[in-house]
Design a protein around this nucleic acid. Structure first.
Lengths: 205, 205
DNA sequence: CCCTACATACGTACCGGTCAGTAACATTGT
DNA sequence: ACAATGTTACTGACCGGTACGTATGTAGGG
């Protein structure tokens, strides 16, 4: 936690188009580069250069590169749950349809040429060390996802809801990874279909 | 390709315990460190230090760090197919049992505390750049795995064998990733069970 | 209304350390 | 002799991070 960036309260009242604070530009660029190329692959010099700012500006808003990476992932986390809840809200009271809707979109996204998997998953692979700021955010996201998937599996009436929830999680992570490994026409395209089969089998147990 | 390491033909005839060539020691240490900590996270200095050799020795046997990483993955590839074929050979003519046997072992391995996922998958995440030596090896491994899984799904008599084969691949990759994310008690423990359900559903279409 | 006073925001220039990789030469064992 | 290894020292680039000076806007005091 900590990091006093973005207080943005005060009386500011920006005139509709703020002058784009340095911290925002940095985070935007970091998000893009970290996701596409990997966190370890990108140096802070590259980030500040592309953001059109200088290094001290970065370290005034973020205490370290690791914390910048964690901030990137917190932003990613927000966007992730937006996408997830969008699928959920589209099918109120129908967890099976919610999952399938979500996975249909995941499957589509994995087929885009610039697809690079899940930023959370990738960060966890890059930073296996326990307690690393980036990994902490990543793990929290995955634990919550598991919790929700299991809850949805239970709501479907699955006999073994935890197993089904975990199975769905495996399919999702598999889609993230194989999406960036195989690209277009890869196995990730069938994630919704396979999830549907798995759900069917788990309900008619 | 290229890289003239390990010719190990000639008349050598080692006396049961070779003096442990520098290249072998390097590759062993690299395998261990690259797998546990990641390729980008480990420098060549660390490798030569732990191997008890010097840097020129490394660069006499391997043209670059990237090629050393590729060699590590080629070794990993061999070991992978050994494990895979072990499960296959244990159940001749029964592809379903072969898959379940393999996944049961994968599920068990993912529960070990030092488990760090699949070296191939991790390397592909670390090196998204097309054509990178490490990524090339990794991709080849995954393409072959997909081919074999689809063939086994067809041998099971699945109506849509490609979808089932891809679904199994998704589960496997999901197990690799969530194994290192969740550790003990994570979703990867249920990979064999979920695969069995998916197969069942795909056969009784 | 002008001048100071202070905070905020940013830039220049630099730090020591580590990165991958190499040159030139000495040592060993067969 | 010769092939494999070690020794030492070095390169230029880059790493994350920082000390320190500078512009700008704005609040008060005369």
């Amino acid at each position: 936690m900590s990091s006093d960036n973005n207080i943005e309260a005060s009386i500011s009242e920006v005139p509709a188009s703020a002058p784009a604070k340095a911290a925002d530009k940095i985070l935007d660029v970091a998000r893009d580069l970290f996701y596409r190329e990997g966190i370890r692959a990108i140096g802070v010099d590259e980030i500040v250069k592309r953001a059109g700012v200088t290094k001290p500006s970065l370290y005034r808003s973020f205490p370290s590169k690791d914390e910048l990476a964690a901030s990137y992932l917190r932003k990613y986390d927000l966007e992730f749950w937006e996408r997830f809840d969008e699928a959920v809200d589209a099918h109120p009271g129908d967890p099976r349809a919610q999952i399938i809707a979500f996975l249909t979109r995941v499957g589509k996204r994995t087929q885009r040429p610039e697809y690079r998997g899940c930023g959370m998953t990738n960060a966890a692979v890059e930073y296996p060390e326990r307690g690393h700021p980036a990994r902490v955010v990543s793990e929290a996201n995955k634990y919550e996802l598991r919790r929700r998937l299991r809850a949805m599996a239970a709501a479907m009436g699955a006999a073994d809801a935890d197993t089904l929830g975990d199975g769905l999680l495996l399919l999702i992570e598999g889609a993230y990874i194989s999406g960036q490994l195989f690209g277009l026409g890869g196995p990730a395209a069938s994630v919704a279909r396979n999830a549907d089969l798995l759900i069917e089998a788990s309900l008619n147990k």
